[in-house]
Design a protein around this nucleic acid. Structure first.
Lengths: 297, 297
DNA sequence: GCTCTTTACGGTCTGCGTAATCATA
DNA sequence: TATGATTACGCAGACCGTAAAGAGC
């Protein structure tokens, strides 16, 4: 199974058209048609796509599920090899979850004070995207944050070997609208909130899967998904009753309309990890930032 | 990056010789040499192997770490597609961890009583191998067992989408030699045992990584690794002081020379999960066994 | 000097593009 | 009928095997 065929297959499935995928990939229609035929032949003649309309068959859907991680890992492998062989970069790129930014800002500020010529790009992304960026070499360092049981590492997508160092753990609070019946409590047990509506906020490490594990509720509620990276927006959604979320209390501060109640059970940490390539040399700037970030831990 | 080149690369690295790898793969020496050269060229001209002696460079070592999971996932993808398209098999193959065998035996026994023509192959493997076997299609069903925090799923190697259903949780005990100073205790806290020698017994879901997470000890002791699938052998090792291990108390029974002390902290479950392909139809036999196994949960 | 890898070269096969054909809305 | 996928065909490049050359112990 050639990865190039897989790439073409995903493009066709995504575009819903051979011709559109061909344009996207710089092939002719004919070439794409032949590649799909070759892929189907290589897989025992199983049809992967229905034609007209073009849509994945059930077998094709299964393949699609595998394709993205496969291509991602292939990219990660290439990036890893190039990192191991190449010279350390002079420009530092850091991908970070929104709630890791204060710590990152502190470290970068200190580093720039020490070495004025520092050249850093910071990009904000959800936890999984941070891991992906580091794995693909789009960033030298990553700061991922999210909810984990005490002592557990974050559950990052499997993008191959990554070095992950825990640099901080904060407490976890439930963020509720101020007029919520439980808003006056001193502490809350998550299993008691298993039936609540939860916001799905992957950028803040409070993705639905995390919440479900923490609350122990099997069925996941239909809920609002917040793709933004801005805490204020998330808190606004909580304030208007779109759902609850889990955050470290300092992130809520004194936002009007919401309150943060400590979680008493189960024991949870809001954990921040520093991600980097296993064999990578992040360069002098990356080294400096790494040391500053890990020093606090 | 062609997967075939990667396969050849791993063979060369494993064999430590171009010619040996060529014989193994059915190529000529020359073809292997050209494939390696092509792979190095595709990766920006980075040398992946030193020649004479043939050994991976640091970049090659990074690639090797990616290669196995990549090839594994590719196999899993192929198996998944074929499962989705093919007819359900009439022969049922089950891969199971040793400590899941009693439950499996009960279910298979009941199933064979109901349908005498049942055709089942059972193979015993470590937890990770069970997951790999199911993913690659070498088994229709898998029974994986191991230690997890309450509510957490087992930490299986990422081999793509697998359906995992928890079918049982048992208590966890520390298995100690009978003459151990702590052998008379009623219960034990694992953090107090962080400095103990632990056996590394991956087949029993007590791999070192699990133990380290459970005990909270960062440094992993040099220890004895037990690759066997036989509980008696493992208990013998404990009896002679080779190290401790974590098992459900029923597995220890009345084995001479060892005692099982319940773990009081942290909270741990010995969890058994039933694994199957996501879109797979396990066939009538698999269906029957699945129902019997999940009925108890 | 011997073993093992690399390079050179020729044949075959794959894979893409052009263009014609076919199927479907 | 028009859009879009498939098939036919020719050519360029990839890939493997044979054989000669080169490199390291």
């Amino acid at each position: 199974m050639d990865l190039q065929l897989l790439r073409t297959f995903t493009a066709v499935a995504r575009a819903g058209s051979f011709s559109a995928a061909a344009r996207e990939l710089g092939y002719t229609q004919s070439a794409v048609s032949q590649q799909i035929a070759a892929l189907e032949a290589a897989l025992g003649g199983v049809p992967l796509l229905t034609r007209r309309p073009v849509a994945p068959t059930s077998a094709g859907a299964r393949l699609l599920e595998h394709a993205e991680p496969l291509l991602l890992r292939a990219d990660a492998a290439r990036a890893d090899v190039l990192r191991a062989a190449g010279a350390p970069p002079d420009h530092l790129r850091v991908a970070a979850c929104p709630l890791a930014l204060p710590r990152l800002a502190a470290a970068v500020g200190e580093a720039t004070a020490a070495r004025p010529r520092l050249d850093v790009t910071i990009s904000v992304a959800a936890r999984d995207e941070v891991a992906v960026d580091v794995a693909r070499g789009a960033a030298e360092l990553g700061l991922a944050a999210g909810i984990a049981a005490p002592g557990d590492p974050l559950r990052l997508p499997d993008v191959g070997p990554l070095r992950a160092i825990g640099i901080a753990t904060d407490a976890v609070s439930v963020v509720l609208p101020a007029d919520h019946p439980l808003a006056a409590r001193q502490g809350l047990r998550l299993p008691d909130l298993a039936d609540a509506r939860w916001l799905d906020a992957p950028a803040f490490g409070a993705a639905l899967a995390d919440v479900r594990r923490a609350t122990g509720s099997e069925h996941l509620q239909h809920c609002v998904r917040y793709q933004g990276a801005d805490v204020t927006g998330l808190l606004e959604l909580v304030a208007v009753g779109a759902g609850l979320t889990l955050l470290p209390p300092w992130a809520v501060a004194a936002h009007p309309g919401v309150v943060a109640i400590p979680v008493t059970a189960p024991q949870l940490d809001y954990r921040t990890e520093l991600l980097s390539g296993v064999g990578a040399n992040p360069g002098p700037a990356g080294q400096a930032v790494t040391e500053l970030l890990t020093a606090g831990a």
